[in-house]
Design a protein around this nucleic acid. Structure first.
Lengths: 173, 173
DNA sequence: AATTACATGTAATGAGTTACATGATTGT
DNA sequence: ACAATCATGTAACTCATTACATGTAATT
């Protein structure tokens, strides 16, 4: 039930088409709540069908612009205030750490080195993004920056942890 | 395709039944790769059917003990060495941050305070776990500790970030 | 004229959750 | 006798991914 609220949240900020929303899912939300085109178009149809959105304009090439209704805003607020986020996490990267015993020490050290490098790369990429984006003072910019800061802290932590873990494993030999 | 390898990884350490594996999925792996009973039993059946596992003993109450085969070990090693982990992340907690603009500043501050407290609680819980568990020197203990350290660093980071973000939002008024 | 960007949709498959269904063994 | 634990399995449903299918409008 989260994609549903992601769509409502984006349309609470501004009216948009499925095509417009996909650009946001592929950029700002790519590391937070990825979604595919088929998911988004399907969800827009369902939300419009149940009155949380309405088609406020139709443009060239079959374009449909969706606007959130009062019912949609109520649903979004109630989701934010009355429900707890699902905090289930899956990390394939970390799962693999459990099984490093089946590899040789050299192979394990390589695995952790690659993870450290990947975290460092991602961190650099986020710094680049932060410098490059033209941050406005609209809601999505203000709160999007808080989310970006989370990404910066996360990738920094991951790099430090992976380097530490690599040294731990290297020390076992 | 990851649950499959989680099962193989656990059975590479020791022979076990589905029931035994569920205890691990509900404890050590609960925050890394959660799985339900119906998933695990299903996967064991498929893996035995394709020769990566075999039923090495049958016990009371229909208990079946599974042992990994050489083919299973090969598959596990090839997964670890030749394939990249899927790093797709979804965070409902962070998604909500994007939409805090629809709440009042007070409501947003509350949301971030709750997140900070939750991260602090989880951190404390992990510290308790670290002290309590009888860490052996088997592979799963050694590498499980590295994963636990990741959890400690993650929850510490989350608490700091949420407190920082709360202060940022409080400063907007 | 050709390419790129715009724009929406369906179908098949796989992964994960929840609920149901059933029963045997052990310990008190 | 009762309760707790052990033990496996199926069915229905939802969510997410990948691939397919189709066509229009704007730019170079």
């Amino acid at each position: 039930m989260t994609l549903r609220h992601a769509v409502l949240g984006l349309l609470a900020d501004r009216t948009a088409s499925g095509y417009d929303l996909m650009k946001v899912f592929d950029t700002s939300l790519a590391n937070v709540w990825p979604a595919t085109q088929s998911q988004v178009y399907g969800e827009l149809g369902k939300l419009a069908g149940s009155g949380l959105l309405e088609v406020s304009a139709e443009g060239p090439r079959g374009r449909k612009e969706y606007t959130i209704t009062q019912q949609g805003i109520d649903e979004l607020r109630s989701w934010l205030i009355d429900t707890e986020p699902d905090r289930t996490r899956r990390s394939e990267t970390l799962l693999r750490v459990f099984f490093l015993g089946v590899l040789t020490p050299v192979e394990s050290v390589t695995y952790l080195s690659v993870e450290a490098a990947r975290a460092a790369d991602e961190h650099t990429e986020l710094e680049r993004l932060e410098a490059q984006v033209d941050w406005g003072d609209d809601d999505l910019s203000v709160y999007g920056r808080l989310a970006l800061e989370y990404g910066l802290r996360l990738t920094a932590m991951q790099e430090e942890w992976a380097s530490w873990a690599r040294d731990q494993v290297a020390g076992l030999t």
